[in-house]
Simulated assay, not measured.
Amino acid sequence: MAPGPEMRASDGDRDKIAGVLREHYAQGRLNSEEFDERLEQLYSSKTYGELARLTSDLPDVDLRRLPETSPEPSDWRMKGRRTQRRGVAAMWATWATASGVNWAIWLILGVTDGFDFPYPWPLWVMGPWGVVLLLTTFVTGVSDKSNR
């Protein structure tokens, strides 16, 4: 059953129309004022008829055959960067925890041996691992402010 003009539209339907309007704006069929005005009307629209009026003067718009919208490519990149930053932060947290545990063991050994502290072997644990993490952080560009 095809939806009638008085049938209520969903958020997904409005998102599809927003994608169509963006495409027509990108192709130059709408100027920025028209685009902004139609977007305002779009998000206050309640029925299929109101949605159809927004695109009635634009070519090739069939509301029933519109593809599902997906996030903009820049949205995917931003999500990937956030995930990458969280991953690098988790690696640094793991490094800090392991280093802290090693230094605590070293300290306990030194104190229990009458303050005769052994060779600072935790440096061999945290040094190479820290260098690898540092290189990973800078090579992936996670610390670069232009990625945020």
Results as ranks from 00 to 15, higher is better:
21 L>Q: 06
22 R>S: 11
27 Q>P: 01
56 S>V: 11
29 R>A: 13
20 V>N: 03
18 A>N: 11
58 L>I: 03
44 S>L: 14
46 K>I: 14
44 S>F: 13
48 Y>R: 10
69 T>S: 06
69 T>F: 01
57 D>L: 08
45 S>L: 12
30 L>F: 07
25 Y>K: 10
62 D>C: 08
9 A>I: 00
36 D>M: 13
39 L>R: 11
63 L>P: 06
31 N>Q: 10
25 Y>F: 15
37 E>S: 15
8 R>L: 11
24 H>G: 01
36 D>K: 12
29 R>W: 07
22 R>H: 10
8 R>W: 00
69 T>M: 10
52 A>D: 14
67 P>H: 03
14 R>Q: 12
70 S>I: 03
44 S>Q: 15
20 V>L: 03
62 D>T: 13
61 V>M: 10
64 R>Y: 11
44 S>P: 00
12 G>Q: 12
38 R>V: 04
52 A>F: 09
26 A>N: 12
49 G>S: 07
56 S>K: 07
7 M>F: 04
64 R>G: 12
76 W>F: 12
65 R>M: 04
18 A>C: 10
48 Y>H: 14
12 G>C: 00
62 D>G: 07
15 D>Q: 13
37 E>A: 15
70 S>L: 04
65 R>D: 13
42 L>S: 09
20 V>W: 01
58 L>R: 01
59 P>M: 08
12 G>H: 11
76 W>Q: 12
40 E>I: 03
46 K>V: 15
49 G>V: 04
58 L>Y: 02
47 T>H: 09
21 L>N: 07
26 A>H: 10
38 R>W: 03
56 S>R: 12
51 L>T: 06
10 S>K: 06
30 L>D: 08
21 L>R: 04
33 E>T: 15
66 L>I: 02
21 L>P: 06
20 V>H: 02
25 Y>T: 00
37 E>T: 14
34 E>C: 02
29 R>I: 04
75 D>R: 03
33 E>K: 15
71 P>D: 05
62 D>Q: 14
20 V>D: 02
10 S>N: 01
57 D>H: 11
16 K>P: 09
37 E>F: 13
32 S>F: 14
8 R>Q: 09
10 S>H: 04
34 E>M: 09
56 S>H: 09
38 R>D: 05
65 R>W: 02
47 T>M: 10
76 W>P: 00
7 M>D: 14
33 E>M: 15
42 L>I: 06
57 D>W: 01
